[in-house]
């Protein structure tokens, strides 16, 4: 039941979310109007993609972490499928975070890449989970692949906060905080929250689809 409804709910929510960002009506309620320079305190529209994408990436990697622990405890194939599906989606979303971040940086500061802590941490995350996928592809045996990937899934996630802290002290003295995002209040907050909801639904949908694929390929292998 839920499986049938989920894609439609996701589609509708995504459409509304995108409409909220681009509709002229929203601009009246405080979303960035067209043609406004960046330093007037408005947030560019890309924020409403960038932040939800980052949230989903973190969520996906957290799911990898928890599933990895559960896999090592229970040794159920299911948890490994959870971790691998979530990691793949996470890497894609994290890549989109980097791309939207670059577009934003070009728009706001005229350069494609800016070494601010948030973006640098996202880059390290992307590298770590690309490495996670490398571990998976390097080991052919299913049981060993699941086990080693689970170990790396745990190690990679624990590294995240430490990477963030070290990037903070690293970026600070070199680059003064150029990137001050305008404070969000009122209507834009709801737009942002709605977008987060929409992207989380998108993640859930992609995740369940990926799980179906995993199960089918498992069945196909057993049939052989």
């Amino acid at each position: 039941m839920l499986k049938k409804v989920l894609p439609w709910i996701t589609l509708v929510t995504m459409v509304i979310a995108i409409y909220l960002i681009f509709s002229p009506v929203s601009a009246i309620y405080g979303l960035c109007p067209d043609g406004i320079p960046f330093d007037l305190g408005y947030n560019p529209r890309i924020l409403y993609f960038h932040a939800p994408l980052a949230w989903v990436a973190y969520l996906a990697f957290f799911v990898v972490f928890v599933s990895s622990i559960l896999y090592l405890r229970t040794r159920e194939q299911k948890w490994d499928a959870f971790a691998s599906s979530s990691a793949e989606i996470g890497v894609i979303f994290c890549g989109l975070v980097l791309i939207t971040g670059m577009v934003w940086a070009k728009y706001a500061w005229g350069i494609w890449w800016i070494w601010i802590p948030q973006l640098t941490t996202a880059l390290i995350l992307w590298l770590s989970y690309a490495a996670y996928l490398m571990v998976r592809s390097a080991v052919p045996e299913p049981e060993r692949k699941a086990r080693l990937a689970a170990v790396f899934g745990i190690v990679a996630f624990i590294g995240v906060p430490l990477s963030h802290f070290s990037v903070m002290i690293w970026a600070h003295p070199l680059h003064p905080p150029v990137a001050r995002v305008g404070a969000i209040e009122g209507f834009p907050v709801y737009v942002l929250l709605f977008n987060i909801l929409a992207f989380t639904l998108l993640y859930t949908y992609l995740f369940s689809t990926k799980m179906d694929i995993e199960r089918m390929s498992e069945e196909a292998q057993q049939g052989l």
Binding site: I124, L127, S128, A130, A131, Y132, M134, V135, F152, V155, A156, G159, L162, S163, F165, S166
Partner: peptide, 10 residues
Amino acid sequence: PVILFPVILP
């Protein structure tokens, strides 16, 4: 190296 460097970046 591919899996070690991202983790030891801190």
